[in-house]
Design a protein around this nucleic acid. Structure first.
Lengths: 334, 334
DNA sequence: CAACCATCGGCAAACGTTTGCCCCACCCGC
DNA sequence: GCGGGTGGGGCAAACGTTTGCCGATGGTTG
């Protein structure tokens, strides 16, 4: 492990000043082409690679971007991770992944620690409240996913639209009374879906029973399932797939046939949705594209030559029908 | 977004030289306690935070560690990600996650790019061949998971031992002829498991049929399942859970009852192993602990006060029995 | 009282890069 | 022959921190 060559070594080897060597490598046209070639050749021979640290100190930019997620083990974020990673790598940025552990404190701690280290951040499903989020958004460039922030670019996944589509699907199968097992009150998606469901229900002539809030974890599916069974419905829309998994578990435990006696719809189409039996009908969210788009917006914002202005990208969803939804059971009506 | 305060500001505010301010904040006891307090107070008031970049340039250490995985969306790595992240955060290190996309080139590119940026790396399931891996291990501090490298610390998960346990489990259920749907030839774990299976088979009086290699992906489970059915066995040990998922898919497709006609055992107990129906009996690998241990070894190595020397940590596995294994079907024997 | 030492603060170099500014040489047009 | 322009190169400062070295002060010991 010998000391890696620096610009000084390259300059010495090619008989020019450090500044010339720097320009030869980074400012095409600024130095004589013959000199530049000589410098490049020396750099190649020495195996020179510019020090990111030196660059960062001088330029104030680290070419690193953070992705904050509340829980790396939640499959919901896999696509996002992959999407941002791909986009960032394409531009030679380093990808810093941070697990905020579902905690506001940990999230703020991470932001504080990262602010001087990274050029910007993608916040996926931040747990911060609006005020703090807005405050942080003034501190350094960030892009949010599924969380609109005033005067900030962001990516939204239109799961609300998908929810309408899912309700239509259930209506077409003859369901007349459907439960929505909702997510956290703080969730922006949840609020939008409730609104969409209300109007769609009216239009489709379907009755929607709102349940929850439930924590979107598999363990909490049991409570949700019990509430659903108590609500006298024939189908349930779950806030997300994790909750749907838990609901399926509990329904099986209680001997309720899916989809014979109860149809179940999830949301996101995460890893595992096609592993359960029956396969989970769900609203597929283009999460990899969302991550990609978020990184895209952030990089645009970091580019000083870029016009600026805030953009909100909204991505469509679509319904994936698997085995967990079926025709509504016949009910005896007087 | 105003310029963050620097050490110079703190020094000015407390009426001392920059060097004194630096020492007051980082070298307890080096400066007079009264002065130190004054400096700390000024730092607090100004909201001073040391610049990681400045530190890195001066010290040559960035306090960042990379975790390289071949595929972030493979649930096998979730535990590892989580384990390393937790351990690194505890020491205030920044966690850089890199997806090598299952490609040797991408992995080397990442290593090259990261070498000057991070203090060390954890390589989980590297796709590099032995020579290149050894070469890289001389370039900068690294710790491998499930991949022994000469003269380097590493973490090994004893899935081979678990495989023996699984075979015993199957033997106790009356299986006499069992298939092993193997993984890539390059896999160290695979080689070890084959060896263990050979001796365990003899001891248990069970015949083991070796199949493969298969790529450990769900899609490749179909080919594995077909080979298994053709091998006239009553149970199969899959290289990992992903392959096992694929095998279950295909068996269901071909109408083979699990575990009635065929028992299936996976490996790793990844997310999803308890989602499939029947639940997958599998060899649970303590992946979060593995990540934790790997980060631990790396941090020890990065600590200059540490004695040094290479350590290999081997973590035990255990069998988790779910629904996919059952008593061997009765066979007609003349 | 001298010699020594411990304590504590400051100066300045070092880490590697970028970039504003200046200078020199050369060329062109008049 | 001279002024102005331009292409190409170097000097040095700047980014923020750490740290080796030195010096001043004051106290202890012989």
């Amino acid at each position: 492990m010998t000391r890696p060559p620096t610009l000084r070594d390259v300059a010495a080897a090619s008989g020019v000043a450090i500044s010339t060597a720097s320009r030869a490598l980074t400012k095409p046209g600024r130095v004589n082409e013959r000199t530049a070639t000589r410098v490049r050749e020396a750099a190649r021979q020495l195996g020179y690679a510019p020090s990111p640290t030196g660059r960062a100190l001088s330029s104030g930019r680290t070419r690193m971007v953070a992705l904050l997620v509340p829980d790396v083990t939640n499959p919901y974020f896999f696509g996002i991770v992959r999407g941002t990673a791909a986009r960032l790598r394409a531009d030679g940025y380093v990808h810093v992944l941070v697990d905020a552990e579902e905690s506001v404190e940990a999230e703020e701690r991470a932001l504080r620690a990262l602010r001087p280290t990274v050029d910007g951040a993608v916040l996926a499903a931040s747990r911060l409240d609006d005020d703090r989020l807005t405050a942080w958004s003034h501190e350094f460039p960030m892009v949010t996913v599924n969380r609109p922030v005033p005067d900030q670019s962001g990516v939204l996944v239109d799961t609300a639209g998908g929810t309408g589509q899912a309700l239509a699907h259930l209506a077409s199968l003859g369901h007349r009374r459907v439960a929505y097992a909702g997510g956290p009150r703080a969730s922006w998606s949840d609020r939008r879906r409730r609104a969409v469901l209300r109007t769609a229900a009216k239009r489709l002539g379907v009755e929607v029973v709102f349940l929850g809030p439930f924590v979107p974890r598999r363990e909490d599916g049991a409570a949700a399932a019990d509430a659903v069974l108590h609500a006298d419905v024939t189908a349930v829309l779950a806030f997300d797939d994790l909750l749907a998994f838990g609901i399926l578990d509990r329904l099986a435990e209680r001997g309720v046939d899916v989809p014979g006696a109860m149809s179940v719809v999830g949301c996101d189409d995460v890893f595992g949705a096609d592993l359960v039996r029956p396969g989970l009908t769900t609203i597929a969210a283009p999460l990899e594209r969302a991550g990609h788009a978020a990184a895209d917006l952030l990089l645009a914002r970091l580019d000083p030559t870029h016009p600026g202005g805030t953009v909100t990208v909204e991505l469509p969803t679509h319904l994936v029908v698997r085995g967990s939804t079926g025709t509504a059971p016949l009910r005896l009506v007087r």
